[in-house]
């Protein structure tokens, strides 16, 4: 069956104000059906107030194996962190 049905990734917003979070995936014929399936499978216990479904094939992902070279330019910059700056105790809550 999965040969004929597309794979969808499902994202759920648990509460207004929060980001949608990835919760899993499912097969469906089209996006409307994917939304209904997602409702049936992933929100049976009021897990969410909003669902996003996205074609899995539309997701472009970085590869963890490439991690070192991909993130290399970011790792040697401790000065991007607030804690890098030593300030007097009286004003250290800045």
């Amino acid at each position: 069956m999965s040969e004929h049905m597309k794979l969808y990734e499902v994202f759920i917003r648990s509460r207004r104000g929060l980001d949608h979070k990835h919760v899993g995936s499912l097969h469906a014929e089209d996006s409307a059906q994917a939304l209904e399936y997602a409702r049936d499978v992933y929100t049976r216990r009021s897990e969410g107030v909003s669902i996003w479904v996205v074609n899995s094939s539309d997701i472009v992902a970085s590869q963890e194996g490439d991690c070192e070279s991909f993130y290399d330019p970011l790792d040697d910059k401790p000065y991007r962190h607030a804690t890098h700056y030593q300030l007097p105790d009286e004003v250290n809550n800045m």
Binding site: Y79, A82, H84, Y85, Q86, L87, V91, M94
Partner: peptide, 13 residues
């Protein structure tokens, strides 16, 4: 932003 303010204050200090 916390980094931004602290680096500025550090320059002033």
């Amino acid at each position: 932003e916390s980094f931004h303010q602290r680096q500025g204050y550090h320059i002033m200090m």
